[in-house]
């Protein structure tokens, strides 16, 4: 080690940094950056895995934005938008309510926390298959519960009933994450705030809205952002339960086809690029709006 003229300590941090960062850098370049560039390139071509891609200009995008013809993508787009907004709000709401119930953090509460988090660690395919049979409209257990309440016939996967069925299932498997984050956030709220509010004569409801909600707003923001971005890309539950082509990712997957001799790879790349950019824009808007309602300091 020696001092340079500037007085800074000369070290080999740069070299070690390069060595230690090389695996992730290679991974990023090979498996994220190059595929993105490739996707953009292919989206302007017609490609079938056998012959070299032929350049077709904006034709793929024109085909995509021909809303009257491309009904599959745009109807799935509508589906997923409603689904994503509702499931994100439901997850956040239920997570907050349960976290408030668990706030005391005693032994009983921790026991419930472990149980309620369980679906989060379980395989989507297995739990979805179980739910698929539970939703069976003749033999399933849920139709039995509905019969108790006087509903004799209910098709859980009729077009108008798909959304509530999927929302219930995804809420079941998804609220554990928001519950856990809210639980951690509630633990971090200093107790003296509540004591001060109580001395000033605030009711529990008031202190919930004036203290708890603002104090957990960073968590709420994080959950809304990641929840929206994540559920706009949802597919595995829908694929596993047999709703082919219900969400945009599945439509993209379908157009890429299974097997060779299919010429729509370029088109599905165009869809992917468009949809990915849209999600990134939504995330960016969310970030911009956050400064109006998220408070980071006490």
């Amino acid at each position: 080690m020696a001092y340079k003229r500037s007085g800074k300590l000369k070290n080999h941090d740069g070299l070690w940094g390069a060595i230690f960062l090389s695996p992730i850098a290679i991974g990023m370049i090979l498996f994220i950056l190059i595929p993105i560039g490739y996707a953009v390139y292919l989206s302007f071509t017609r490609y079938d895995m056998f012959n070299a891609p032929t350049f077709v200009g904006w034709r793929n995008y024109q085909r995509l934005f021909d809303i009257s013809k491309e009904t599959q993508f745009w109807s799935s787009f509508k589906n997923i938008f409603v689904f994503a907004v509702l499931i994100t709000l439901l997850n956040v709401f239920v997570g907050l309510v349960i976290a408030c119930l668990l706030k005391r953090g005693g032994r009983i509460e921790n026991f419930f926390k472990v149980i309620l988090y369980l679906p989060m660690v379980c395989s989507v395919v297995a739990t979805t298959s179980i739910w698929g049979w539970m939703y069976n409209s003749v033999y399933g257990p849920l139709i039995g519960i509905l019969k108790f309440f006087g509903v004799e016939r209910y098709e859980f996967f009729a077009p108008s009933h798909v959304l509530p069925s999927m929302l219930l299932m995804c809420l079941w498997s998804g609220f554990g994450g928001s519950m856990l984050l809210y639980f951690a956030a509630l633990k971090n709220i200093p107790g003296h705030l509540y004591e001060a509010a109580e001395i000033d004569g605030a009711t529990p409801v008031q202190s919930f809205f004036k203290i708890t909600l603002p104090m957990v707003s960073p968590t709420t923001f994080y959950l809304l952002l990641t929840g929206l971005v994540g559920s706009l890309q949802a597919y595995s539950q829908f694929l596993a339960i047999g709703l082919d082509g219900y969400t945009p990712v599945l439509v993209i997957y379908k157009y890429a086809g299974h097997g060779y001799g299919n010429t729509t790879y370029g088109y599905s790349c165009a869809m992917g690029v468009f949809y990915g950019i849209l999600i990134a824009v939504i995330a960016a808007i969310n970030f911009r709006l956050s400064k109006f309602w998220v408070g980071y300091d006490v």
Binding site: F31, I32, I36
Partner: peptide, 21 residues
Amino acid sequence: LFATICIPGVITLIPSYIMFA
């Protein structure tokens, strides 16, 4: 690196498949 989290995986879904293949 942190910005790459924001890249939606849906973009790379099909091109990664073609690349690997």
